[in-house]
Design a protein around this nucleic acid. Structure first.
Lengths: 259, 259
DNA sequence: GAAATAGTGTCTTTAAGACAGTATGTG
DNA sequence: CACATACTGTCTTAAAGACACTATTTC
């Protein structure tokens, strides 16, 4: 466009020059600013239950309580990149399905100061975070129970493997609740359950994953029809072996062009 | 819980006390923080076209370009509240349907400094922003055209009433694009078009609104069936009068319990 | 061949698409 | 009564639910 070459009458210089001068003089310290963090709700399906990965806080506030992996956004990194970094630093996870979820900004959600949290949800094959929990002692895998049906929404409850209830720091139970709600919504029109399984999987495994997320049984035949019709599944030609019954075909995720 | 009464061994004080001391000593200035803004994508349907409301920028950067109504989040207000305030300050609008959309955080999206934008979308009866455009000269109502089908996504194009193209500041064309995509998605399972119409409306008016948003014609009978089956519409018993043909029944939005 | 799950066939139900037909105002 | 849109009826199509039946492996 001709934008850069037009003259700014008030200053007798080009607009671009006027804008440059303004930016040089701009003082970002002139008003109070909140801090911005990312928090990642990791979701996996393990033993027919939803589970998540938490990190034990070593610092105040909420010291010694469980929290979602999270951290402050660096001044020159994008939000997505911050989420990836946090996931790698706190949970040693790379290349997971990651999607922005919702931004939580209640002024009192963090007692330190104003912290706005851009939350993400991530889906992983549970095998990948088992090993993470073995290596770092602050990390635990918690079972997640959803006290509401469908897409009602609200916080979820967490418990340890021994059944003891786990309380989450900040509003992290709400973040997880939002993640489950979003996930349930997505399942209605995407077979996103792939992301929670190994590369190759059977249709029954996929069905169990969907059932666990939705919290209700699904009908086998129509589930199959729907999945195969989605065009996002690809038969590998291989079968699972040594299972004491007719071997099921293995499928894989088929990368496609459309959304 | 017994949390507050347990003793923190490292200090010989209660945890609550240790946490209080920590918070008093906490220095929020110790790392660089981004600024946080809210930007509101106002959407209305006018003359069978999507339209939006923009504000002419009087300051650098992007001085004299159109932008979505937006502003910085105050240190003690929630994000939702900030969006409401901005809408009132910049567009003199209150009590509109407002929903958080997505958070944009590319490090270079604002040339001044790092600004993270929590975007919202708002739906209004177009009559309400016509009057706003008449009163304040910085405000204009732009026609919006969507260069993609379905829920593909991407930026949208804006034009003035005289047809001239309007370029938006920052990444605001992407924000509007995201708003349209989300709106299209929501229409599949909610009759959210209410929010774009006066209190009482006919089913045909509602259908036209849906068609404009989706960018494709809808079948009359199945649209009616779907809307009435949704349970979110309530017949008022009144009819539109003086229309030169059989008068259509007027409906209103029925507040309900479920999501 | 018994056990166990894989995978198919098919009847029913539900919702949407298509489109014609009837209804009821204004002029 | 013409016109224009409101509303309804109904046939077709597509997808989902229900559920029984056949297939194929291990032991």
């Amino acid at each position: 466009m001709t934008y850069k070459h037009r003259v700014d009458k008030s200053l007798g210089v080009t607009r671009a020059e006027a804008e440059r001068r303004f930016l040089d003089a701009y003082d970002p310290e002139s008003y109070a600013r909140p801090s911005v963090a990312v928090d990642v709700a990791l979701v996996a399906v393990r033993e027919d239950a939803l589970s998540t990965l938490t990190v034990l806080r070593t610092e105040h506030p909420f010291r010694r309580m469980h929290a979602l992996p999270g951290g402050f956004v660096q001044i020159d990194e994008s939000l997505d990149r911050a989420a990836e970094r946090v996931l790698e630093e706190k949970a040693a996870l790379r290349n997971v399905y990651l999607e922005q979820l919702y931004t939580f900004g209640h002024p009192k959600r963090d007692p330190r100061t104003r912290v706005i949290s851009v939350s993400y949800f991530a889906l992983v094959d549970p095998a990948r975070f088992e090993e993470c929990a073995r290596t770092s002692p602050e990390v635990s895998v918690c079972r997640l129970s959803v006290p509401w049906a469908g897409e009602t929404g609200g916080p979820v409850k967490l418990s340890r493997t021994d059944g003891a209830a786990v309380r989450l720091a900040f509003d992290h139970a709400d973040i997880l609740g939002m993640a489950v709600r979003r996930l349930r919504g997505k399942l209605e029109y995407t077979p996103i359950g792939f992301q929670l399984l190994p590369d190759h999987f059977t249709l029954l495994e996929l069905q169990r994953v969907h059932e666990t997320i939705l919290g209700r049984p699904l009908e086998k035949n129509s589930f199959r029809r729907r999945m195969l019709a989605s065009g996002q599944l690809e038969a590998t030609g291989e079968s699972q072996r040594g299972v004491g019954h007719r071997p099921p075909e293995l499928y894989r995720f088929a990368r496609r062009s459309a959304t």
